[in-house]
């Protein structure tokens, strides 16, 4: 039986791990290779690395980071953040990513995911959706550029079209809950779950195992967290023991 995944997330800026709240107030949190190795040893099922660099130098440093992490990593690596073109995405894959997440560029250029999936296969393509409660309509809207741009696109509708656009998986981040440790946005997750057959990774707001159990009960296939692992509050293996006791199938390592 397919198990439920726990995915630590590393935000990378110019080759260093950083952590912020609501995509802002970044603080340095260490070396990505060391942290990747630690998470792998601690039972992570996969890693997500988001490049939050705003500069060209930062972008090319991110490729070096992907290469360095790939050398030590024997679990899947998904890389995202600022991926704007098929060429940029294939650079990430060649450097050692197994999947590429696309967010802003997918909204601005809706044929990008299709072009990318035709080039590399949809299993390598993750539609990354950052969603915030809309101030203009009932529901959630897609936000891009680290939350600075509210697109007016209905996030649930966007998820509904993910498969036909060429994505093989959805990384769903609640912009409202990200970094707040108040739990995943369960209403958002449930609505997206009903809209798409694709695997969904819940992200934004995790603080303890109960949040993860709620997400799995709402149909998440994987849960992503950053702060709780960075701050060493817990490890994937500790969470898995608790999840297994609650009847959730996880990989024991």
């Amino acid at each position: 039986m397919l198990t439920q995944r726990i995915i630590p997330c590393l935000d990378i800026d110019c080759g260093r791990v950083v952590k912020g709240v609501k995509f802002a107030n970044l603080r340095d949190a260490g070396d990505p290779v060391e942290q990747a190795m630690q998470y792998q040893a601690d039972g992570a099922d996969e890693l997500v690395m988001l490049d939050v660099s705003a500069t060209v130098d930062g972008r090319s440093a991110a490729l070096d980071t992907v290469r360095a992490v790939r050398r030590v990593l024997s679990i899947p690596l998904c890389v995202g953040g600022g991926v704007r073109s098929v060429e940029h995405a294939t650079d990430m894959l060649r450097a050692g990513a197994d999947k590429v997440g696309v967010n802003s560029a997918a909204v601005e250029n809706p044929t990008l995911l299709r072009e990318l999936s035709e080039e590399v296969g949809s299993q390598c393509v993750v539609l990354s959706i950052d969603a915030a409660r809309s101030t203009t309509f009932e529901g959630w809207e897609v936000v891009t550029r680290s939350g600075q741009n509210r697109t007016g696109v209905d996030a649930v509708d966007w998820a509904r079209h993910a498969r036909s656009m060429g994505a093989g998986e959805i990384l769903l981040t609640s912009f409202d809950n990200d970094g707040t440790r108040s739990g995943y946005d369960i209403e958002l997750l449930s609505a997206v779950r009903r809209a798409t057959p694709l695997p969904v990774i819940a992200s934004g707001g995790a603080n303890h195992v109960e949040h993860m159990i709620s997400a799995f009960h709402c149909g998440a296939d994987a849960v992503l967290a950053a702060s709780i692992f960075h701050d060493r509050d817990t490890t994937p293996n500790q969470l898995k023991q608790q999840l297994a006791q609650r009847g959730i199938e996880v990989r024991q390592s």
Binding site: T3, D98, Q123, G168, E169, P197, P199, D221, R251
Partner: peptide
């Protein structure tokens, strides 16, 4: 009726393997 693509770890004998397939 099952999640497709299958992305994730599934049991194989005494261990778990990572799949990415439809």
């Amino acid at each position: 009726e099952v999640r497709t693509p299958q992305h994730g770890w599934n049991r194989v004998g005494d261990g778990y393997a990572y799949y990415s397939n439809s």
